[in-house]
Design a protein around this nucleic acid. Sequence first.
DNA 1: GTGAGATCTTGATCTGGATCAATATGCCCA
DNA 2: TGGGCATATTGATCCAGATCAAGATCTCAC
Lengths: 240, 240
Amino acid sequence: MDLTTEITSGACPKVCSECAAREISICRVLPHPGLRQMADVAATKTYVAGETIAFEDDSAHHVFNITDGVVMLTRLLSDGRRQVLGFLFKGDFLGLAQGAEYGCSIHALTTVRVCRFPTSVFRRFLLQTPELEEELLSRASDELRAAQTHIMLLGRKTATERVASFLLYMAEREATLGGSPDLAFLPMTRADIADYLGLTTETVSRVVSALKRQRVIQLLPHSAVRIADHAQLLNASAGR
Amino acid sequence: MDLTTEITSGACPKVCSECAAREISICRVLPHPGLRQMADVAATKTYVAGETIAFEDDSAHHVFNITDGVVMLTRLLSDGRRQVLGFLFKGDFLGLAQGAEYGCSIHALTTVRVCRFPTSVFRRFLLQTPELEEELLSRASDELRAAQTHIMLLGRKTATERVASFLLYMAEREATLGGSPDLAFLPMTRADIADYLGLTTETVSRVVSALKRQRVIQLLPHSAVRIADHAQLLNASAGR
DNA sequence: GTGAGATCTTGATCTGGATCAATATGCCCA
DNA sequence: TGGGCATATTGATCCAGATCAAGATCTCAC
C-alpha cells in the first residue's frame, strides 16, 4: 500500500471508509471536503429481502446509493398490471429519474444496504459540486441507453430472445462487479423476470427449461445460472 | 416591452435572436457570454422530410438542438426488425443518450431545422457551464421518466391502450408547443407509429378506425387527429 | 388534372404467448 | 426430518395481435 492511499483512507469519513461501494459509487468523484459534507448528511440503512423501500407516489424525500444488494423498480397500472422497470446493484445511484414523487416503487430483492441523502440537501450540494453533476449526467446517459435497449427488447424481441438477453445482462452485471461473466445470480422470482420482460411466469419458465434442455445454460442451486454456451446464448438474444 | 428585454435581444447573437426555439431550448439557461460562445461554434442546418440525419453506428460528432420540425429515433436488430425509440420536437435537445456512436438512427419526419454543435466542443463548454449541466441533467431526468412510461406501455398495455396513449402523448406535445390539447398532427407513417408501439401497421390502423367509429377521435386532413372525447381516450389509455 | 407509387384500410387466417389447470420442487421453520 | 406454503414447472386450450392478401385512398410530379 502506498502512502497516498494510507493518508486518503485515514482522512476519509468513517461511513465512507467502511462503504462496500466506495470506489464504484458516485462519491468516487468527490473531492475530500465534498465527501465529508456528503457523509455528514448521509444515513446508512439496511432493508431486508422483500421489503418495499418506497411506493411510487410517495414524495421523493431521498436519493440513494446502493452499497450492497439488489433493488427492483416497478410501476403499476390502475388495474394491477405491473411492469418491472429495472434492477439496481451495488454502486448504482437511485434518484436520477425522480420528480416530486418517486415515480416507481422500490423493492429490496436481497438484503440491501444503502447510503441515503435527503433530496433537498443533495440538490443543494449538487449545485456546488460540478464533479458530481458531471458524474450524474454521465450515469443518466448510460441509463438512458439502457432504457432504449429495454424498449427495443419489449417492442420487437421474441420470448426466447428476451430471456436470453436478460440472462446475458445479469451475467454482465455480475462481471462488472468482479464475478464470472458466465455466472448469473437471479435474486428475483420468475414473476419479477416476467414483469421485466413483458411476459408471463409460465413463458419465462418454459424458455428457461428449453435453454437448459439445449444445454445452453445450467441451473445451479441458490437461483444461480451458469452460461454453458455463451455464443449460443448471444445468438439466441438477437443482439442488444 | 421593458428595457431589460430590449437590451438582451439587442446583445444576443444573430443566430440566436432568429432562433424559433430561443426560449424553450437548453440555451435559455445560458448567461450572456456563454450564449455568445455557444453561438460561435453553432451551425444551423436544415434537413428535408425523409432525410436521415445520422445512422446509429456513426461516430457521434454532433449534438443538436431541434429548432423546428419533428425528429424520429430508431434502432434496428440485425435482421431488420425496427424499434422507434422516440420522437423529438422543437426545443428538444438531442445528444443526451449518446456515447461514442449515436446509438440510434436519427430521421427528419418533416422539414427539420437544427442548431448543431461539435460534440467535443460542447463537452468542453459543458465543463465550464454549470447552468447548462443542470439543465441537461434535468432534461435527462425527464427523458428517463418518459422512457419508463414507454417501457410500461410496451411491456403491459394492450394494442388499444397503446394507440390511445400515443394519441394523448402527441396531443400533449402539441399543447406544450402552444397548440390545442385536442389536436394532434401525426407527421409519421402508420409503420412508424407501429414500430414505436411494438405493433404492426395493420393493428394500428384497425385501432384508429375503431376509435373513429366510436367517435372518440376524428381524422382530419393532413394527418391531423382531433380528440373528440378526451375523457374516453384517457380511459382507453389505462393511464401513464 | 392525371396517373403511378406509396401508404392506409379492411378482411381472412394463423400463431406465439397468454390463460387456465394440475403437479412438482423447492425453502423455511418447528 | 418433515410439514406446509411459496415458487416453479409442465400440459391443454385459447385468443389478441401477427401475417397474408386485396383493395382503397392519398400524394405529388408532370
